[in-house]
Amino acid sequence: MMNPEPGTQAQFAAALREADLPMPQGLCAWNGPDPARRFEVYRNNVRQGLLGALSSRFPAVERIVGRDFFTLMASEFISVNPPRSPVLLAYGEAFADFVAHFEAARSLVWLADVARLEWARGQAYHAADAEPLAATAFAALAPEALGDAVLTPHPSLSLLSSPFPVATLWAMNADEMPLAPIADWSGEDALIVRPHGLVRVYRLPPGAHAFFSALSGGESLGESAETALAAMPDFDLTAALALLIEAEAFIALHVRETSDAR
């Protein structure tokens, strides 16, 4: 990088972000030049403010690794991936990928997926509002139309598939479940949605991830059921439909005209 011109905001900004750089030129205080400690207030404020934003976005990750380690990891993230927008509620999307490649956290191979789940929760919290479909909308469908029903996902809906017990790991570190050793260390899929005021996290039964992915992608109920069965032979359609209704994860339904309709 070229050295920024002395006395400019470019130089001030660079020195704020890089603790190794000297203080910018042209600064002073009433009692002398080179007010290093005064400049340090700004430097610390930038750092602490962004650390605070990440720590409130990824509280379970912080609880898992402890405050010191989180501070180290988040500081590294901030230096390579500073916010590009003043809207900090959208800051941290790249954090999970960063965690996945963070050398010192390599022993926690599952940590990045916990970060992905927390990011999804934050996105769901701020997503657009929409009234979810009531159970009666499904009950009212003619049985023969069911297979061609196409659903519109709630704007807050997201799905996560993990080779680790991500939902349990998250729940235990978000005071949703008591903290305990996880005996059954199997992969978990999660559905994250905020149909009303609260963000909900559902642990999905086998095949349901494929089912909900297909539905969100615009496949009909019939096609999605087939997709899920193909992906997971012991896919339980009843359980998936029950979850679909309970999670209130979809907002609209229409029956597609099939090409062979007479």
Binding site: F12, L16, G49
Partner: peptide
Amino acid sequence: WSSHDTVFLNDLLP
């Protein structure tokens, strides 16, 4: 000021 180039510095700078 609080942004420079495309980076948001998250502080009210003098």
